[in-house]
Amino acid sequence: MKLQKRTVGLVIYFVLLLLPIYWMLNMSLRTNADIMKVFTFYPHEPTIANYVKIFTDESWYSGYLNSFYYVSMNVVFSLLTALPAAYAFSRYTFLGDKHLFFWLLTNRMAPAAVFLLPFFQLYSTFGLIDTHFAVALSHCLFNVPLAVWVLEGFMSGVPREIDEMAYIDGYSFPRFFLTIFMPLIRTGIGVTAFFCFMFSWVELLLARTLTTTEAKPIAAIMTRTVSASGLDWGLLAAAGVLTIVPGALVIWFVRNHLAKGFALGRV
């Protein structure tokens, strides 16, 4: 009985959660005129014209490739730099550690609008404008602090005795970190990777400011097309449906790391 109540609650939540997404899917399979005129629960004359346009027009599908490219770069950067740093914060006290830890997070607190111009100036000084690297690096500003904070939380959940035992057993630090410690916090690594992916994927202002043509992200291409000749709601909805797909795949791959948690008996 208890289990059932819990399932019912979950199902209700998911139905509510999926309604706007269903509506987006519904819109993506209809023409613009049809969307603006008729209220309908499902498309009566479904058309895939919107999707065809995205997959055949290079200015559209290159946006997905660009986004995917710099987002992957950003996730790798963020995890590689944040893992050792999070370990340092969770295991050691050192000069200025608490201040540095909190300072990291303050980088997420600035309103983007006014910071865009200085960003553009800084990156053009180094000739980085319109490269995937520039977007990946600028997204580190908010993803690296997040990664350090989330990973530190998970690492602090692992008892320090495990580290001590491993060192007594003669493990070197890299070997201990890769073979014992990382498997223990894989839940945290999974969550962190997904969050970095997600925040970088949906970020619009920085990505749009730092790119012109070569590395234009999909979110910016959507707004550009929208402002050109009024709103093409159907096309926009189709593009929206397609932006969900890569992220859904990412979470499908990390789901096991999320769901398994960690077993203390491993060491």
């Binding site: 309604l19 997404i21 949906v202 619009l204 926009l236």
Partner: peptide, 25 residues
């Protein structure tokens, strides 16, 4: 597995698109 994938869906839509979809919705 299914719950985690479903839960994550709204997070993956670019923010400007979310606003646009909700206008119609």
């Amino acid at each position: 597995s299914l719950s985690l994938v479903l839960v994550a869906l709204p997070l993956l839509i670019p923010w400007n698109v979310i606003g646009t979809i909700w206008i119609i919705f």
